[in-house]
């Protein structure tokens, strides 16, 4: 079947079977490989995108369910002039990534958090990231980056 959606502001369409996952559709049909597939079992959150403004795991949603939806992926996060958005810049400034595999999902989760909670506490950030797994950083620098992106002072975090 033919599926159409607005991805990062552009109307895009492609072919999908019933079983085609949104993550597969974005990567293989639309060529948007910034959305990563880590576990493919709904645990790791590397595939996090926004569908109609809501953070979802694109490996646990069928592409057909996003037909007609507004989808936002990591490819659309930079500012119009090509510079990094505030969350991406904060990840760079605070060394919020090492291997980078989880980063697209982390950034999409963080952007979603800041849309509903402009000044989250450290605890709120950690709770919001429960569905996003990073095996490099130990999360501290990711938490710091999100504190910084929200314009807050970056405290020494627990266990440092």
């Amino acid at each position: 079947m033919k599926i159409s959606m607005t991805v990062n502001g552009k109307t895009m369409s492609g072919e999908a079977e019933g079983r085609t996952l949104l993550s597969t559709f974005l990567r293989e049909e639309l060529g948007l490989t910034g959305t990563h597939i880590g576990c493919d079992t709904s645990q790791c959150g590397a595939c996090t995108v926004h569908v109609d403004g809501k953070q979802v795991k694109s490996c646990t949603m069928f592409a057909a369910e996003a037909d007609g939806a507004e989808v936002a992926t990591i490819e659309g996060q930079a500012n119009a002039d090509g510079t990094l958005n505030k969350v991406q810049q904060a990840f760079q400034d605070h060394h919020g990534l090492q291997c980078g595999f989880c980063t697209p999902g982390m950034v999409m989760a963080a952007v979603s958090l800041l849309e509903t909670n402009a000044k989250p506490s450290e605890a709120e950030i950690r709770e919001h990231l429960q569905g996003n797994i990073c095996r490099c950083t130990g999360y501290h620098n990711i938490v710091k980056a999100i504190m910084a992106a929200s314009g807050q002072e970056v405290p020494a975090v627990a266990a440092e």
Partner: peptide
């Protein structure tokens, strides 16, 4: 329940 992404679906 689950995590924020799961709760949206």
């Amino acid at each position: 329940i689950g995590d924020p992404a799961v709760r949206n679906r």
